[in-house]
């Protein structure tokens, strides 16, 4: 079973990298870009075959390593 984890900065946390990308898009002539947020996607291959167990396992991985929950939020998707 595969899991895909998306880690993003929480709403309201300033994202300097997203701001830099937004500026660069403006420089390239892309008008109307109001906001850019940059995050991470992490794909994990698991030997687990039970969906609930896999989700619980990956959620624990997020809490303990993959996300810094002080500033980041995450979503777990099973593929």
């Amino acid at each position: 079973m595969k899991a895909r984890v998306q880690v993003m900065l929480k709403d309201g946390v300033l994202d300097p990298q997203g701001e830099a990308v937004r500026h660069a898009l403006g420089t390239l002539g892309f008008d109307g870009v109001e906001d850019v947020r940059q995050g991470k996607v992490i794909e994990i291959a698991l030997s687990e075959t039970d969906a609930d167990a896999a989700r619980a396992r990956v959620t624990e991985m997020c809490e303990r390593l993959l996300a810094n929950t002080v500033i980041e939020k995450y979503e777990v998707e099973l593929l």
Partner: peptide, 16 residues
Amino acid sequence: IEAGLLPGALMRNAGI
């Protein structure tokens, strides 16, 4: 901070 021995977070510098 990552080890949880101090609170808060250290993020990318605001000025990039």
